[in-house]
Design a protein around this nucleic acid. Structure first.
Length: 197
DNA sequence: CCCCTGATTGAA
DNA sequence: TCAATCAGGGGC
């Protein structure tokens, strides 16, 4: 049985946490059994000073509100027809967050296959932020949930491969911030998302 | 209108 | 394999 991480796991600078999340597990406990993916790709968003962040210049709306709250909170938002999930970081009042961009299926494979389509190759189930949420059964209902509480939590796992960095994906119009190397991913992992120009 | 996207289409 | 298209929520 997996156990949620301690709240203190989230109390560190956003770039550090983004890296530490690589290799950890997202556990979604459903009546039919646990559905688990191992995080292989994240992106850090540095709140007020980061033009690519929703909370740039401390923009505070119904959507971004949760980022001003407790580190370890779940920030979900909708991008077109998809749900993307983030881990809130930074002290209360500092709206930092980490987008979870991709994972590797670990458990609940039948559930994921069903959610993602019978014909789809396993490597395409969870290799993008929207795909991962869909595969794990995570919806906007988890907005404001905490990543240490069942039935949706982050758990520690052991082995982590080499972590590489790159600029973030899909933020073309973010000025200076376009080049910041704030994307983290496990090197040579087949479930890392495809680069988007 | 512009996005922290992804499935599908139709060309090369 | 790749580029274009579009779906359709929220913020400005």
């Amino acid at each position: 049985m997996h156990q949620p991480v301690e709240k203190s796991f989230f109390e560190k600078p956003v770039l550090e946490l983004a890296q530490d999340l690589i290799g950890q597990l997202i556990v979604h406990e459903l009546p039919t059994g646990p559905v688990i993916a191992r995080i292989v790709e994240t992106e850090a968003y540095h709140g007020a000073e980061d033009q690519a962040a929703h909370s740039f210049r401390n923009r505070r709306t119904k959507r971004t509100e949760v980022m001003f709250g407790e580190p370890g909170s779940v920030y979900t938002y909708q991008m077109h027809t998809h749900t993307l999930m983030n881990v809130v970081c930074g002290p209360v009042g500092t709206p930092h967050a980490i987008l979870i961009r991709a994972g590797e299926p670990v458990e609940g494979l039948e559930f994921m296959r069903e959610r993602r389509g019978e014909k789809l190759a396993m490597k395409d189930w969870t290799n993008g932020p929207g795909k991962l949420s869909k595969a794990l059964g995570i919806t906007m209902n988890y907005y404001g949930h905490h990543w240490t509480n069942r039935p949706l939590f982050i758990a520690k796992s052991e082995a982590v491969g080499e972590v590489a960095t790159s600029p973030r994906i899909g933020i073309a119009n973010a000025g200076e911030a376009v080049h910041y190397p704030w994307r983290f991913y496990e090197k040579d992992n087949a479930f890392v998302s495809k680069f988007r120009p």
